[in-house]
């Protein structure tokens, strides 16, 4: 991202502050690493509760990411290509979950999809479906907070790419679906990867909305962040160890994604 900047024209102060910012990001990680119980790490991470939370976390974050792609891609197209009536308002609404405190997001989800919620009461009485306190509920909460990250990234790429190529394809006789699959999507592939990675990372770290909407039960809704939160009161060393796993998993995926699918 920063590679395009001509560094010889960059004022020294900007470089300075930039590195101070980098320090701000790195420092807490260093803090975590220096407190890590390296010797007891294997035994802590081998505990069945931690493995169970890891399993729930992977299922929830991957399912939420899939939901973000399936729902977010059409939404990004609508935002980028459709003539909307109040585009600014719609775009602001899409971004709201990014600024909403997650606990409030969770409560809002309860009001909407809870057993006595606006829509939830009908889900319950018509289909017998109740989302709170289920893994599906955790997925909904994670998808709610992660969706904007995917949509905003992909929409920006769609706008940047423009629709000249799409029109050229249409002129050459390609149908709408064929254009989408063979022209538009390949053009924005880097943004698709970036959006997916961002949404997944957000879903993996999600805490407040999940806890408020889906509760906390081992093997069902207790994800790694919830396990970490509870472990912090019982055994801070375990909390640090679990956080290390979260970071390592996220770092590994983000680095892999970057190497494979994003041009440097």
């Amino acid at each position: 991202m920063a590679g395009a900047i001509m560094s010889n024209r960059l004022p020294a102060a900007v470089t300075w502050v930039g590195f101070v910012a980098l320090g701000l990001l790195v420092l807490p990680i260093v803090g975590l690493l220096q407190r890590a119980p390296w010797s007891s790490l294997p035994s802590i991470l081998g505990e069945s509760e931690v493995l169970e939370a890891l399993r729930v976390s992977l299922i929830v974050s991957l399912a939420a990411t899939a939901a973000c792609i399936v729902l977010g891609l059409p939404l990004a197209f609508v935002l980028a290509r459709r003539r909307l009536r109040f585009p600014r308002i719609v775009r602001a609404v899409v971004m709201l979950p990014m600024v909403l405190p997650p606990v409030v997001a969770g409560t809002a989800l309860l009001f909407a999809l809870g057993r006595r919620g606006l829509v939830g009461q009908w889900l319950d009485s018509w289909f017998g479906v109740s989302l709170p306190f289920t893994t599906a509920g955790s997925v909904v909460a994670a998808a709610f907070v992660a969706l904007p990250f995917f949509v905003v990234t992909v929409e920006a790429a769609l706008r940047q790419a423009g629709d000249d190529l799409d029109e050229a394809a249409a002129t050459l006789g390609a149908g709408a679906w064929a254009t989408l699959a063979h022209v538009t999507l390949p053009t924005i592939r880097p943004a698709l990867a970036a959006g997916t990675a961002l949404a997944w990372a957000r879903a993996l770290g999600e805490f407040g909305a999940t806890l408020t909407f889906a509760g906390n039960f081992p093997g069902r809704t207790r994800t790694l962040p919830l396990e970490t939160y509870l472990a912090l009161e019982r055994n801070p060393e375990a909390a640090v160890a679990i956080s290390l796993v979260l970071m390592a998993v996220a770092l590994a995926v983000l680095v892999t994604l970057r190497d494979r699918w994003m041009p440097r």
Binding site: S7, W16, G23, A157, P190, A191, A193
Partner: peptide
């Protein structure tokens, strides 16, 4: 978004910013 080009990439002078970051950490 992430598709930056690498043309004209040159590294900034190194020592000063690293010192700043280290000082902050210390």
């Amino acid at each position: 978004m992430a598709a930056g080009s690498t043309n004209g990439h040159r590294r900034p002078p190194r020592t000063v910013p690293w010192l700043a970051a280290t000082a902050l950490m210390v």
